[in-house]
Computed example of a mutant assay.
Amino acid sequence: MRADVLGLQAFISIAERGSFRAAASHLNLSQTALSHRVRKLEESLGTPLLLRTTRQVSLTAAGTTLLPRARRIFEDLGSAINEVRVDVHAADEQVAVGCLPTVAVHCMPSVIAAFARRHPGIGVRVHDNSASEIADKVQSGEAEFGVTIVAANRWDLELKPIVKEPFVLVSHRSMPLAGATSLTWAQLQDEPLVRISAETGNRILIDDALGARREALTWRYEVQRVVTAVSLVRSGIGYAIVPQLALDVVDVGELVAIPLRSPAISRTLGIITRKTVPLRPAARDLLSLLSQALKRSVTPRRDE
């Protein structure tokens, strides 16, 4: 049975004021309209709620049972409405965005600074997560949009490519390959390599591009995150293949980045949004600033 909210409201008002006239005045209704609402509620319940006399109105046993429950319904409804208003107000004061960690470190400081100058009253929440986690947050509405790796898309999300970012070999300056201007994958066969976990989008891209050739490489170490891979390289125990922007996540110091070829592998970064939900003006502005920063950040390179 559907809840008769207007009927419950009329019933509560009559019960609390003891008369149809006072209740009608409180609700800004005619007594006829008020009586119609109560009668409709009683018919839906199959029992009278009020005892009417010429001088007063009292509750039946059913009305006595219903009144405290009806009050709680309206209290809960009022609380829910207030919570929604608070949430909407808070959302208006903040834009949430999902972002790959490498992009977050490289681009977000300058982007947020520019956004703050344009929108001094609006904050930014950055969810720096993996590609799959970013898709989850955009899909659930926790983030209005995300910057992620362009890959297989979900049916209810829209993905717009922005820029291609090459993978590079990271080496300590003391390592034998550090002086190379570029390297082929074949030249890495006997070198100790650090690779990222198979659960990450970066690893999937590299494995797909190399195919069976990846088995000929010496993957001596495996880590979960790019930052950890670069830290191992800094210790001088091996080399790592990482996205170009990853070097901005760490203090480069004694590290060098060497372009890779045959094949040259890159990842495409793009903006992910919900198909049926338009972005608010502030979110659109943040997206525009971030897209421009991404295009400036990645140095174009010819695939060889």
Rank of each mutant, 00 (worst) to 15 (best):
Phe167Lys: 08
Phe167Glu: 09
Val168His: 11
Val168Asp: 04
Val168Pro: 05
Val168Glu: 08
Leu169Ser: 08
Leu169Thr: 11
Val170Asn: 03
Val170Asp: 04
Val170His: 02
Ser171Trp: 12
Ser171Met: 10
His172Val: 11
His172Trp: 09
His172Ser: 14
His172Met: 07
His172Cys: 11
Arg173Trp: 09
Arg173Val: 15
Arg173Glu: 15
Arg173Ser: 15
Arg173Pro: 05
Ser174Ile: 09
Ser174Gly: 13
Ser174Gln: 15
Ser174Tyr: 09
Met175Pro: 07
Met175Gly: 05
Met175Arg: 13
Pro176Thr: 11
Pro176Tyr: 03
Pro176Glu: 03
Pro176Ser: 03
Pro176Trp: 04
Leu177Val: 14
Leu177Ile: 11
Ala178His: 11
Ala178Trp: 06
Gly179Asn: 14
Ala180Thr: 10
Ala180Val: 11
Leu183Lys: 03
Thr184Leu: 02
Gln187Leu: 05
Gln187Trp: 06
Leu188Val: 08
Leu188Asn: 03
Leu188Ala: 03
Gln189Val: 13
Gln189His: 12
Gln189Ala: 12
Gln189Tyr: 07
Glu191Pro: 02
Glu191Trp: 13
Pro192Thr: 03
Leu193Trp: 03
Val194Cys: 02
Val194Phe: 00
Arg195Lys: 13
Arg195Val: 09
Arg195Asn: 12
Arg195His: 14
Ile196Pro: 00
Ile196Val: 12
Ile196Cys: 01
Ile196Met: 03
Ile196Trp: 01
Ser197Cys: 04
Ala198Pro: 05
Ala198Thr: 14
Ala198Cys: 04
Glu199Ala: 12
Glu199Arg: 13
Thr200Ile: 07
Thr200Glu: 04
Gly201Tyr: 01
Gly201Pro: 00
